[in-house]
Amino acid sequence: MSALLAAATPTTTWYLILAAVLFGIGAVGVLVRRNPLVMFMCVELMLNAVNLSFVALAKRLGDIGGQTTVFFVMVVAAAEVVVGLGIIVSIMRRRPGATADDITALKG
């Protein structure tokens, strides 16, 4: 049993497959949910999946550039969340309880 556990060390492939599953769950969430806030959270899930695969490949390839890229992705995600939540707040203030179906026309 312990030999089996020692043999089954998680490889880069495991990490990449986990990242793919996480990305798929996030994509399904964006397509299915109608609350704009929850759709935003699903976009964060997809960003995290890509970050995970960047870090796993940085370890495998021995290249620090992957980790630097993840740093930039985090900065851009923070900025994106700030602007996106600002848009959601200004929409919700005019129409309380709006879902993604109510705001398809791109005008107030």
Binding site: T13, L16, I17, A20, F23, A58, G62, D63, I64
Partner: peptide, 23 residues
Amino acid sequence: VIGLVVASVSASRDVIGRGSGLE
């Protein structure tokens, strides 16, 4: 999406290079 990515990852499992540049 999951199926395509998993298929491509497992197909290229041995092609990805190895390096040791990480401290």
